[in-house]
Design a protein around this nucleic acid. Sequence first.
DNA 1: ACACTTTACCAATACGTATTGCTAACACAT
DNA 2: ATGTGTTAGCAATACGTATTGGTAAAGTGT
Lengths: 348, 348
Amino acid sequence: MTSDAGPRPGRRVTMKDVAKRAGVSQPTVSFVLNDRRDVSVAEETRARVLEAAAELNFRPNRAAQSLRSNRPYTIGVITDQIVSQPYAGQILLGIQQAVQPDGYVCYVVERAGTADTRDDAVSNLLAQGVAGVVYASHGANPIRASRGARDTRSVYVNCWPHVDGEQACVVLADEYAGGAMAARAAFEAGHRDVVFLGGFRDDYACHERERGFVDAARQAGLDPDKLRRVYGGYQIGSGYQLALSVLQESAPTALVCGNDRMAVGALLAVHSLGLECPRDVSIIGYDDQPDIADQVHPALTTVRLPHLEMGALAGQLMLADGDPDPGRHLVDCELVVRSSLAAPRAGA
Amino acid sequence: MTSDAGPRPGRRVTMKDVAKRAGVSQPTVSFVLNDRRDVSVAEETRARVLEAAAELNFRPNRAAQSLRSNRPYTIGVITDQIVSQPYAGQILLGIQQAVQPDGYVCYVVERAGTADTRDDAVSNLLAQGVAGVVYASHGANPIRASRGARDTRSVYVNCWPHVDGEQACVVLADEYAGGAMAARAAFEAGHRDVVFLGGFRDDYACHERERGFVDAARQAGLDPDKLRRVYGGYQIGSGYQLALSVLQESAPTALVCGNDRMAVGALLAVHSLGLECPRDVSIIGYDDQPDIADQVHPALTTVRLPHLEMGALAGQLMLADGDPDPGRHLVDCELVVRSSLAAPRAGA
DNA sequence: ACACTTTACCAATACGTATTGCTAACACAT
DNA sequence: ATGTGTTAGCAATACGTATTGGTAAAGTGT
């Protein structure tokens, strides 16, 4: 008969139930389960408590914990259009995996819509009493912290506070290194006439990647100013048009694109001009967007953005003791080699 | 001096603070704020309480509420790869918008990874004590409810329980009507030789859409068995290959695709054969995937999946009194007309 | 003036956990 | 035997809210 306990059956198991079963008091159970080594519990008692808790499948009531210790086991995640972007989930997943071992869960709020509904959502979130807020955006950019959230612990992923407070904790991809990586791949494959198809010119990511491109060109012994650099809008259509005009104007052997969607557009443009990739033109993307980069023909050589890792880092920073480590934390990108990049033809 | 209250400054405002300011007891505050009309409170007192609460910007402590009333203001959302899919956010957003007015909050758990980490995540979620769980998947399919969640109120979005319990509450897009809608658009534009480029053949969505396609053909006075129907895998590459072989074999004037990515693949195939869309071949997608359907050239005529509405419905069902209304709740899709569909050339 | 109902409010308590004293028992040295 | 320190454990309490069971005052009908 292992089932002597079974309290009021509809209720969840509480510490009191565990205490009764182990023949100790409720505080003792609390001490044991929280591994409070500063208060002494006999080893044998500890074992009995742990066993009882396991047998009853005890789960602490987070509401009671939060109430008592005034520490909510909840992290707010405020996103931009990010939720509607495919890589958004990666960041979220990274955060979750980082905080889950400590029993934390994420409350996700999309700040789409009007400013009103957004502030509603955020204040709803703060009303719940979160341990902190992670701001995550779809593209690295400044973001306005919600009013009322100024005194809340905050971590910014892929964005940063709009005001000039240097103490903000910011997690970013190392876009400069990523841009250099993409460009270097082209140069090392032997390309000399490489065009940079950037995204929004004012964009942080675009700017950094271009810096990387320029420095990589220099390192390859080329004059960056001789290489064309054009700008568009991160969409398939933009990539299509930019590539079309670039290819009609001259005959570069490689295109380094602002992201994978632009690369797909470039691919369409190459096809529509009767050329072939990578035989006539190599194409390099950015993002490693799932179901896109690896699915087009030819599959894209691209730079993977470390969204999972960025989320994980944000989660760790959020849980760290004291204020989250201020400053910019850069996470490395990774070159993903597929078939859209090849050596230029001998004649080129 | 409006600031006579300010209790211990670091603390959140509680009902006691409001009570003191309004000159009443804490229970009275509770009655007023919860609009408990069954207990009587003088109109004048009620007003005083409301004013005090507003002045102090009182927010109820959800942890305390949950503890006392044994009702967690929390809904668990368990997703599949959905978080890494672009439309996932739409479902989530829909749920949130539906439950937010009631003060509920969503905990999102991605069940990616091994079965172990998944069960960990889910049990973590249940340990928090959620009011219910919404299962959301990226493609309509059966899903195995997590063990330990069997007695929890559940709503399934875009999926259904793996076991044959008829009492499950399921929210699905009306894929049959959507498929018919897509096909009808082609037939009504004048196309006769239309090919169905399906996704996974065993897939629920593919099956339903094909049923819609067949019935729409019949209604258009065509013999469905004369129309080719081929199957692939919902990816760009699959659409590319299917379209390529279909177009090389005969000359259909329209392709009805399993989703937008397959449609993009089909577009690539059309281009690579030196044809033009929609002049030579019309293409119809499915999903209305953001940044894809509206960005390719030509922009895709497609069927929008009502993810936002499905999420909202799931949220409503979750909050309904009593058990969630069992059965399949179908949500309508919507035809989105863009330029990839045109009338067939006169000669065709 | 009396009983009875209604109105308006409050004191007390419960929810499950974490923490702060306190007590009892024992070990050890004086 | 006495003091001192350590170990092991529990009783009591606090967190903020919702609910139960009162009580005092006012109103109503005779």
